[in-house]
């Protein structure tokens, strides 16, 4: 199970990276942490002609907080996000989610940008980005642009990035006062991709919930922001009735399909169970 032959290059600058991308186009793949790509190469599920290792662009690694925005460079490793005090303080949702990302050895190598750009629908970080209303900074040789997470995940392993574009960073609004996050996923074994997971973020003031964002993952081709379910909590206190309404509303938000281990019905059911549990966690209630 050896990777097929390819050529490798490690550019020293973004400009050089763009030149390489331009030259090799679709035949090239970007290599960041490699935790999905190298596995795919070993299994011969991917066979690029050129691998462009962007691991040398250290300026795109790191966490910066500025004017209400926390930026995570695309090459920031999962372990650095996991251990970052800024993340713990400003983005508790990510802080909660990171330990669920694969296993420690993979987090040591895997990058934030790699996970976002790979857009696995069962992965944690795309869903968290959705729940937190993040924007992604994307650049091509010609221009840079920002795409909101909700516009970014287009389909199965498919994103809004155009050929020639690179993901440079994720930008997150820092936690505002009154806002809370909660995260849970159901995986059969520690570190597995979840059957269903839920990243939730919202405001709780005087016992009243508002601006709730529920991002489910493992339930379709992309992570899904469940607007109908979230609406069931808008302006309400956490209650069994609100949970039931949200659970019922999920019908209109999610369209899970069967995977090899679980039926769509099981996924839908589990998504509903998680709705209650995660919202209870968010609202600080024991349940």
């Amino acid at each position: 199970m050896k990777a097929p032959a390819f050529a490798y290059v490690k550019p020293a600058s973004l400009a050089e990276t763009f030149e390489l991308i331009e030259r090799y186009g679709e035949e090239a793949r970007l290599l960041a942490g490699g935790q999905s790509l190298v596995a795919a190469l070993n299994m011969r599920l991917a066979a690029p002609r050129v691998l462009i290792d962007i691991g040398g662009l250290r300026e795109f690694a790191g966490i910066n907080v500025m004017e209400g925005t926390l930026a995570i460079g695309a090459l920031t490793r999962h372990r650095d996000v996991e251990r970052s005090p800024e993340i713990a303080r400003h983005l508790p949702l990510l802080h909660q989610a990171l330990p669920h990302v694969a296993h420690a050895a993979v987090r040591n190598r895997g990058t934030f940008g790699g996970s976002i750009a790979f857009a696995d629908p069962a992965a944690e970080l795309p869903a968290c980005s959705l729940a937190l209303d993040a924007k992604f900074l994307i650049a091509s040789k010609e221009r840079a642009r920002r795409v909101a997470a909700r516009e970014f995940f287009k389909g199965l392993y498919e994103t809004a990035m155009e050929p020639g574009e690179i993901l440079l960073a994720g930008e997150f609004p820092v936690l505002e006062s009154g806002y809370r996050s909660a995260f849970q996923e159901l995986a059969r074994r520690h570190g597995d991709y979840a059957i269903v997971g839920l990243a939730a973020h919202g405001r709780l003031a005087n016992g009243v919930l508002s601006d709730v964002r529920l991002a489910y993952f493992g339930v379709g081709a992309t992570p899904v922001l469940a607007r109908n379910a979230a609406a069931a909590f808008e302006g309400k206190a956490f209650s069994d009735a609100a949970v039931s309404a949200a659970q019922a509303a999920l019908e209109h938000d999610l369209e899970p399909s069967d995977d090899i281990h679980h039926s769509a019905a099981a996924k839908m059911h589990l998504a509903r169970v998680l709705t209650g549990r995660v919202m209870a966690q968010l609202a600080g209630a024991e349940r």
Partner: peptide, 29 residues
């Protein structure tokens, strides 16, 4: 009891022939 099974399509294709999809018991559980 809890994890292991070789899943086949009706045509006899193994559907979970990798350690990602064939679940073996790990320390955590």
């Amino acid at each position: 009891a809890l994890y292991e099974q070789c899943l086949y399509s009706p045509e006899g294709q193994l559907l979970n022939g990798s350690l990602i999809d064939y679940l073996v018991p790990m320390a955590g559980e």
